[in-house]
């Protein structure tokens, strides 16, 4: 049996698109089957959505009160309990997957391959090291499960046009009580999630203040874009941490990335290397971001953005 188990990421009401991207990666394994495990509480809608992912054969819904919040210490033993039936156990390389999957691997007594960016064969993968400044080819051991996280920026989401079966699954894993969820502070609003948005508008220190970021929000809302920021803008307190794009923030791959007032520190460029088209607007003609931008404009973002807004969206 050469089958795949994917640990789904969701927020209780909908799948995170990272799951559909992980399925795309799993398809490249040419495995016999792909199952998706959904851990949560009251997750019928999420399980039904997972069943629509193209290429998925079966959805395992592990619905219990203890799974209401994605705590690694609670979820990992349940994944490990399901794992013996599979050759591959994959999760997305999001903060959720990065938290859960190594714990699963250790419980299974195997190592993990982090951030798969390409599947070369059934046991050989490419992954980035040194913040993407080198790519290594890694071969997994011949036996034992292959536990891995999938770099979501490297894979397109599969379509939601399938019809897998949904089965209720239970495990006899003992769940710990030593880890307790308190709260999630989130102020992302209605804008598309950075890691899945087709277009991302992003600002750096050049934006100058929290208030002036409103200009970027307005432009983003006009074109249905997500909003990101450089580490400098986050550190200056213009925007919250979860908007940070870069090596220490989110690694994203939108079709179009519009960078305003971002100089282009290496750690930021690492986070946008997979974007389809990169547009940079900066006052400084020597800003490093122009070296990787597909379209560059030397100019004042405060003049450029209002003009762009006029041109965009009719």
């Amino acid at each position: 049996m050469k089958s795949v188990l994917i640990v789904a990421e969701h927020d209780g009401s909908a799948l995170n698109p990272s799951t559909a991207k992980t399925v795309r990666c799993a398809q490249a394994l040419a495995a016999d089957s792909i199952d998706v495990a959904v851990f949560g509480s009251g997750i019928d809608a999420v399980a039904a959505q997972a069943a629509r992912l193209n290429g998925v054969n079966r959805v395992l819904s592990v619905d219990r009160a203890e799974n209401a919040h994605p705590l690694a210490a609670v979820i990992a033993p349940q994944v490990a309990a399901l794992a013996p039936d599979y050759r591959y156990v994959f999760g997305p390389s999001t903060t959720f997957g990065k938290d859960v999957m190594p714990r699963v691997a250790a419980l299974l007594g195997v190592g993990q391959i982090s951030d798969i960016m390409e599947v070369l064969s059934a046991d050989t993968f490419q992954r980035p090291i040194y913040a993407g400044n080198a790519i290594v080819t890694v071969r997994a051991p011949a036996d034992g499960p292959i536990v891995a996280t999938v770099r979501v920026a490297s894979f397109r989401a599969v379509a939601e046009d399938g019809s897998a079966s949904v089965e209720t699954a239970t495990t006899d894993a003992t769940l710990p009580t030593h880890t307790r969820f308190v709260e999630l502070q989130s102020d992302t609003g209605d804008r598309p999630d950075l890691q899945v948005a087709n277009v991302v508008v992003s600002g750096g220190r050049g934006v100058g203040s929290k208030e002036k970021f409103d200009l970027l929000y307005a432009l983003a809302d006009r074109i249905g874009a997500g909003v990101g920021a450089s580490r400098a803008a986050v550190d200056a307190g213009y925007v919250p941490n979860d908007m940070q794009v870069g090596q220490t923030g989110k690694i994203i791959s939108p079709n179009l990335y519009l960078a305003f007032g971002i100089s282009g520190a290496i750690q930021h460029l690492t986070g946008i290397k997979d974007a389809g088209t990169i547009v940079a607007v900066n006052k400084d003609p020597d800003a490093p971001i122009f070296e990787i931008a597909d379209i560059g404009l030397v100019g004042d973002l405060f003049a450029v953005i209002p003009e762009l807004e006029k041109q965009f969206g009719g």
């Binding site: 927020d11 705590l71 999001t94 903060t95 959720f96 030593h178 880890t179 307790r180 969820f181 308190v182 709260e183 999630l184 502070q185 989130s186 102020d187 992302t188 999630d193 890691q195 919250p240 941490n241 979860d242 989110k250």
Partner: peptide, 14 residues
């Protein structure tokens, strides 16, 4: 307090 993709998650650990 943990930095997660969705924002900041707070957990208690023994």
């Amino acid at each position: 307090t943990r930095e997660v993709d969705a924002g900041l998650e707070v957990i208690d650990v023994d």
